[in-house]
Design a protein around this nucleic acid. Sequence first.
RNA 1: CGGGGCGUAGCGCAGUCUGGUAGCGCAACGGCUUUGGGAGCCGUAGGCCGUUGGUUCGAAUCCAAUCGCCCCGACCA
Length: 447
Amino acid sequence: MRLSRYFLPVLRETPADAQIASHRLMLRAGMIQQASAGIYSWMPLGLRVLKRLEQIVHEEQMAAGHIPLLMPTLQPASLWQESGRYDDYGQEMLRITDRQERRLVYGPTNEELITDIFRRHVNSYRDLPLTLYHIQWKFRDEIRPRFGIMRGREFLMKDGYNFDVDKDSALHAYNRHMVSYLNTYEKMGLKAIPMRASAGPIGGTHSHEFLVLAETGESEVYFDNDILELTESDHKVDFDNPQECAEVVKRWTTPYARTDETHDPVEFKSQISHSSRRQSRGIEVGQIFYFGTKYSEPMNAFVTNADGDRVPVHMGSHGIGVSRLVGAIIEANHDDRGIIWPEPVAPFLVGIINLAPKDKKTNDVCDDLSRRLSAFGKEPLYDDTHDRAGSKFATMDLIGIPWRLTVGPRGLIKGEIEMSHRRGGQTIICSPDEAINRLCRGNGRRE
RNA sequence: CGGGGCGUAGCGCAGUCUGGUAGCGCAACGGCUUUGGGAGCCGUAGGCCGUUGGUUCGAAUCCAAUCGCCCCGACCA
């Protein structure tokens, strides 16, 4: 992508409204623009990141055997009246009346709608287990939206719902989700810790939240330092094997890890040695629930089990805050010059800086680099503008592109360009061929 | 929803107390000079001072209402 033809409205000055790093940087990097309180337009650069996250979520969901569909943003109020949540949910739920005086809600979550879909089509345990999910915009009319995308009113969420014939199989679905979520966050280059949580308005008996540690997090968290050492995505888990999933869950839920909602200071002190106790702040980027028959009973979602009995289906729901993750990733990955994207989620893996757009040789090398990177599925952001070098470097740093190739006539005399790493800051001088080799070897990401 | 604050050019702000021709920096546009970490000089353009009403010879400025936005708190992914 040539910068001269792109739309990247970066801001040199910090907008007054932005309080935290991710909000400030997303505005400055031209990723988002506020439309009204807690509601944002996603500019091209921001959209690229959002789409990357979506893609990773889809891949990991499908790997776990979950089935994508797409439900609407507007839902009939009648379904919410059926479950009893129309009155329970409160002012946070945006209610709309259409021209026929029909009552609608802009969905803050989709338990009712998915249960309605399920009950119309599924009647037998033979059709279970089933997990359906979608990635869709939600709306919660927060009293006070803040921190940009981190706590907006409109947000993009992956929400999934499992349907199982009994509690044991539903708990396997719960475990399966925990494993797939661990994989998902790791694929994004994030450390997210599952912590025991309360179920809130969704209800239920089992719940874990996934938290990214960051000073600006909204939750106070307490955990055993050992949990930071755990990793998951290296292991290959058979998602259909309850034993294997349960083992992973056990490994991750054995070390103490709680939010302030479920924290028990006595247990914390007695269970963990002083040197391993950690207290920090965290940003919630996902949550999983098992709530049994809370919705299936009032909404009459029953199946016939192997014994021929009609039983309410056991359910859970599972969410990943996709738009919020963009902010969380920035909170955990930035410095005073700007964003530092983890490679898997970067809007562009490589930026090319042309230091002399009037020089034919320099242009030729830049064009060639662009073409070859694109051919490898790694479309670069190519700064072919006539700005000064310093300004180009500053922009590339601000928007956090992991790798930067700097091309100018001075280096090209010796056939050399400069390749530098945003995160580490290291710079090597090499030939264009070597830069391509370094960036494209291994199993590169597909655009 | 309680408390506080802010709406003046695309962005960041001054001017409001004490009413009298609307300003500064950055960005934009043109020219010259620069050219490897947010360049310099000269010039140009851009604003119904959030909106409505009132007071006044005269309102960005005073008064009232209203809309929007931000911060702290309670609430929340």
